[in-house]
Design a protein around this nucleic acid. Structure first.
Lengths: 348, 348
DNA sequence: GTCCGTTCCTAAATCGTTTCATCGGAGGTC
DNA sequence: GACCTCCGATGAAACGATTTAGGAACGGAC
């Protein structure tokens, strides 16, 4: 039996300790760990016994220092509080799990500084690759990561230069779908409630909205843009208050929101101030998160294939990590409008 | 200037390369990194210049191998798709950021196997400490972590033995509050819609419900328990269908759901099947996530201080990591009922 | 009895960083 | 001018795993 105490010792057991306990050399222990077929059954069992007795846990730092490769990926999320991104993350997780890598989730919370800190740390950790929904896809730190050898895949954004892969959904088209739908059901004065213009998705969806508006031959001044501080439920409520403040003549009869969180906030404020949806205000959201269908008035929304978005992104990253002949690819998914009561009528 | 190419070289620059480029010794580079005040200004600048030119990135594996300590914590979440846990995570993040540690989020998704894999990997990574909302707090793997020297704090659960810290909310009390409220507003036949009984929170909330019911002197058979496969929106919808299937005489007039996701699903199914809330069915949720207030009918819910829960848990972990005189502590927060339209009447 | 081929194991070098004992030189003191 | 002190910089020795070249033991064939 083992001589060393089984657990609770001040320093955790190393291969050396295991070797000593099992009465074999270091290399043999390593072989048991990495190439068990090269070790005879009796020796292997003796070593495994020693590992169990000592509570041996491989030191990943040493391992990856020597082999030069960690076994992990990371996804830097723009907003972990937004179900859209957790769904994307789930798709990524699935692919990572299948490939036997572990995935670390980091949350930048929309703040460049946090994002930068995460990226720096991940780079120091030498993760195999990074998936990121960036605050700003043009951030030079992203290029720097790639130059220094960490593969990066941009999720839910694209960029002109193609020094990396990206997976996104056509946000301009999504914006068009939303506004075309509102025009279809008869609205002629519409608000686009976006988050801060610093967010690319917000700009693109707004651009799509403008295109649809212009193509319908409607006067530009009747598509008003309200921008929020952040794409959150609270901002949506605040936007609702601003909307009410407008003189009735100029008040929009419908709102297209840059995401479902804003839309839910706007919906909540509208209803609690005694107005009706879609009677007084029709609302279209974006993302079609699970809660959109469960809202006070089920929300019309632009659906993105969020799970596939994540899965595809992870697959591209894994290819880039493992396949020397990897070609960068810019995948663009197509969004889809899901019409519900918030734009259609009273029935759910 | 630097002789070595600035970037894109096959192998990233090490301290040795920096030392050679700057014309100093290894130790000096390390001093610049770790104790800059011990290095003269001119030398320091020369070294910093070399680091910039070479695109030097510290290798965290080597660093933590040598120092024996990483600079990271991890939170293993039960369900990243549930806003309750992402809010808890946000509280943890805040505390970790303040302490200058980085936080890895892992998602067990309610599956023991995934949780185990994450824990094993984190242990190999030698993270400083682990916060976890476990699938099962009695899992021996958790004790094993502690025995082998990784501090663990249990979040949103407690356990009798106190070989670790925990931060939780009094779920039995929460269950009582919910059911007392339903009794108060006149309900005499109530359903408890729980997730799978394997989840401790589900059991405790049910226990509280039973206690309140018994204390009110109501017959036990009028508090029916419906258990779902998983605490999700989809399960809530399914539970709604089962509820409708009951004969009118035995059908509950109110439902207390083990969390808000179930409640939202139930609410959605109830309304879309043409019944009203709270007229045909009053609903109480649990967690008071942001979406509860924005639901079809604003949801009465039992609020947990989720942000504080996370923050406090992280503080306890940080104390355990840094303070040799650390005492394990079992923190219990008190939940609070937030009454809204789903149990009260028509006005919001 | 020698030679050869397996099979199984050993010993030593290595990854990149930190740390610690040491050392050279500049400047001050007697 | 000898001696001491400090400051700043040095170089070797770790940390714990993997890898590779090589060696001992053993059996079988000639």
């Amino acid at each position: 039996m083992a001589i060393t105490p089984a657990a609770g010792s001040s320093r955790s057991a190393s291969v050396k300790d295991v070797a000593a306990t099992a009465g074999v050399s270091l290399g043999t222990v390593s072989n048991v760990l990495n190439r068990p077929d090269r070790v005879s059954r009796t020796t292997r069992e003796r070593v495994e016994r020693a590992m169990a007795d000592l509570g041996f846990v491989r030191n990943e730092s040493a391992r990856s220092l020597r082999t030069g490769s960690t076994h992990s990926l990371a996804y830097v999320m723009l907003d972990a509080g937004n179900p859209f991104f957790t769904d994307v993350a789930r798709g990524i997780e699935l692919a990572a799990e299948t490939a036997g890598l572990s995935l670390f989730l980091c949350n930048s919370d929309g703040r460049s500084a946090r994002e930068g800190a995460h990226l720096a740390h991940l780079q120091q950790q030498r993760v195999q690759g990074i998936l990121i929904t960036p605050v700003d896809p043009d951030d030079p730190q992203i290029d720097q990561l790639i130059e220094r050898g960490t593969p990066v895949v941009i999720v839910d954004r694209t960029r002109a230069g193609s020094s990396f892969c990206s997976v996104a959904v056509d946000d301009v088209l999504g914006g068009r779908l939303a506004v075309e739908h509102l025009i279809d059901v008869g609205h002629r004065r519409v608000a686009y409630v976006g988050g801060p213009a610093s967010i690319g998705q917000v700009r693109d969806r707004g651009e799509g909205a403008r295109q649809a508006w212009a193509e319908a031959g409607l006067p530009p001044e009747d598509l008003v843009t309200l921008s929020c501080e952040a794409p959150t439920v609270a901002s949506g409520r605040a936007a609702g208050e601003r909307l009410v403040g407008l003189p009735a003549r100029r008040r929009p009869t419908a709102a297209f929101c840059a995401n479902d969180l804003i839309a839910l906030g706007l919906l909540q404020q509208t209803i609690s101030s005694g107005r009706t949806v879609p009677g007084d205000l029709a609302i279209v959201g974006y993302d079609d998160i699970e809660f959109a269908a469960a809202a006070a008035v089920p929300l019309t929304s632009v659906r993105q294939p969020r799970h596939d978005l994540g899965r595809r992104a992870a697959e591209l990253l894994l290819d880039e990590v493992g396949n020397p002949a990897h070609q960068h690819e810019q995948v663009l998914f197509t969004p889809e409008l899901v019409a519900r009561s918030s734009t259609r009528g009273r029935s759910s």
